[in-house]
Design a protein around this nucleic acid. Sequence first.
DNA 1: CCGCATTTACGTGTTTTACGTAAGGAATGA
DNA 2: TCATTCCTTACGTAAAACACGTAAATGCGG
Lengths: 217, 217
Amino acid sequence: MIDIAIFDEHRLVLEGISGLLTGISEFRVVLNCDDRNILTEKLKSIQVHVLILNMHDISVRNLNLIVQLNISNPKLKILVVSVIDSEEIVLKTIKAGAKGFLGKDSDRNSLIEAVYTLRNGHDYYSKSITHILLNRYISSLKADDLSDNADINSLSSRQIEILKLWGESYSNQEIADRFFISVRTVESHKNHIMQKLNLKSTVDMVKFAIKNNIIEI
Amino acid sequence: MIDIAIFDEHRLVLEGISGLLTGISEFRVVLNCDDRNILTEKLKSIQVHVLILNMHDISVRNLNLIVQLNISNPKLKILVVSVIDSEEIVLKTIKAGAKGFLGKDSDRNSLIEAVYTLRNGHDYYSKSITHILLNRYISSLKADDLSDNADINSLSSRQIEILKLWGESYSNQEIADRFFISVRTVESHKNHIMQKLNLKSTVDMVKFAIKNNIIEI
DNA sequence: CCGCATTTACGTGTTTTACGTAAGGAATGA
DNA sequence: TCATTCCTTACGTAAAACACGTAAATGCGG
């Protein structure tokens, strides 16, 4: 048996969604709610497995609701339903802690499937959402790669060694000791790096090292 | 009409794949090849729309083949087919420049669909691959978020202002001038930030600022 | 009103950066 | 072979930044 709560600010839509779930013997809708505060209150006493949350906008209030519910009800799985399936809203809800997202391409069957999936501890995203996420990810993967090839090749291997250690928070003295060279030499290497790459500050040098995978964030 | 080349080191499998494509009037298999060098050579003279590449392993040779073909034949779309559908191989082939990937869940229909999709300039990934990529992306999104909420809240708004400017490569003096305070005060703020966050070096402070979206890389 | 964090600031000593200079070695090409 | 160029090494000097301690004024919540 899966206990379900449904939240929608529009009572009519709320009832509509609720109706879609009747007739499934394993589903028990224990709460229909159209008020944010009442929802938060009630969920303190009632144990619910899945919360279906219809989002009409990407307001901070809505996102905060997800964040807060996740903190107060760690076991609760939140399934966001929204006609707005922009990249922005999807990413923000996932970051806020939603476990599933149904875009406007979803029907009753995908809603039911999503509830089961969330209950089983997995994430569920409808097809259109999957596409959005995947495209974004793929393009970020590709973008990553292009940025790799610019200035880093102009650095010598010694310069990269120095930059790497320094980027891992070693002091000049520590670097000097490790390579058996003078602190002044370490400084020189860093000066040369800055000159070559035309960097204004050491902060820029950190950023460069991160961008070029010399160090991790 | 879509011109197709097929590469597989195993002649038997090669013929099998080739056979799957007969009977589609819009497809024309113009090259079956089981040798890397011959493939590269022939593709210099023959114009092909889609190359179906069966990868038996993630060797550097295979990945380089993709990279090289992409450089020499920019219009060519490479569709990778592989029974190995690990995260690693998928990510590497995408980075190398493959436009599609068919995992072991694929059948003849998805192969045909993939060829059409690539020809139309889009990417194609079979269901299992989509899952792999999506899970990775989602978890990276979530990981991002967890690191967001910890320490940054402990900083005062003044401290964040200072950190932000400093992270944009402003000198202490410039920051001091902008806020009409002493350089010593700027130093104090930075000291307090380092203490609060328990950071060992200014390099760490840059990383912190990046992780917490105070500055851009 | 008291305690606590914030913002402001200084003192002192160390480390790092800025900018210039330079010597010895390896690689390269005329 | 000799000139050139880059790399690695290193120092001088002055300015800037950092480490660590101290401390006064301000403001806010209990």
